[in-house]
Design a protein around this nucleic acid. Structure first.
Length: 244
RNA sequence: ACUGAAAAUCCA
């Protein structure tokens, strides 16, 4: 099963869901039963390909075969529904989980907060955050970052910084992605002075990468400041990164 | 242990 899990996951990662499905069917013909990890890999493949129907059908198949649809499987399905803007589907999954007395957990809350943030519903995102806290569920760096990203994208930079300050008091320190959200905000509104300042601080903390440099360069280019952009590019190469 | 799920730029 360990081998099959990797193989199915690998096929799906390279966009070969159909082959993964055939592989699974083949195993079933040999009366080999798969565990929930193999199935979640397949579910993930379907969701990545936007084939929600097939994913749900597979989930029903799991139930029929007596395979436990665990939290990870629900997480995959939730994320697939949310990425498809299928709020109804997402809520029916939540109901289903509630009936099974399963709690969403921080990963699923992260998906929800991220989805709300990406669609500009910051009030709903924060509300979800509070429900999560109320359940005693601890957010991690990714959860915080999803919220910070939504707040930055909506222009609530002060709110975002408030949450980042809160992170410093917990065990999850803001990482490259978290700071990247703020950096993207600054470069998007053209506040390059603050952006450069932040990037400097990030560089000291070894929190820069291709993406952060890309944001800076894009910001300068958008303002027509090609001279500045080229010096950032030079520094990028100096840092041992490979511009893409 | 990036092992089956979640976060930033770009990628039409």
């Amino acid at each position: 099963t360990y081998t099959y899990r990797s193989w199915i996951s690998g096929l799906c990662l390279t966009g070969r869901v159909a082959e993964a499905k055939e592989f699974v069917d083949g195993l079933h013909r040999q009366d080999i039963s798969l565990n929930e990890m193999c199935y979640s890999a397949l579910l993930h493949g379907y969701c990545q390909a936007g084939r929600l129907e097939d994913a749900l059908r597979t989930a029903r198949d799991m139930v029929e075969r007596g395979v436990n649809v665990d939290l990870v499987c629900y997480g995959v399905l939730m994320n697939g529904n949310l990425r498809n803007h299928d709020i109804c589907g997402a809520f029916s999954l939540l109901d289903e989980m509630r009936d099974l007395r399963m709690r969403p957990g921080h990963v699923i809350y992260t998906s929800m907060i991220d989805a709300y943030g990406k669609s500009g519903k910051l009030d709903a995102a924060v509300e979800t955050w509070e429900v999560m806290i109320g359940e005693g569920c601890r957010p991690n760096v990714v959860t915080y970052t999803a919220l910070v990203n939504g707040l930055c994208k909506a222009g609530y930079i002060d709110k975002a910084e408030l949450f980042m300050k809160e992170m410093l008091t917990t065990r999850c320190f803001p990482n490259t992605v978290t700071f990247g959200c703020v950096l993207d905000y600054l470069t998007t509104i053209g506040n390059m002075e603050s952006a450069v300042q932040l990037h400097h601080a990030m560089r000291e903390g070894l929190l820069t990468n291709n993406a952060t440099y890309n944001m800076l360069i894009r910001g300068f280019c958008k303002l027509g400041k090609m001279q500045e952009a080229s010096s950032v590019l030079a520094q990028m190469v100096e840092s041992g990164l490979f511009p893409d």
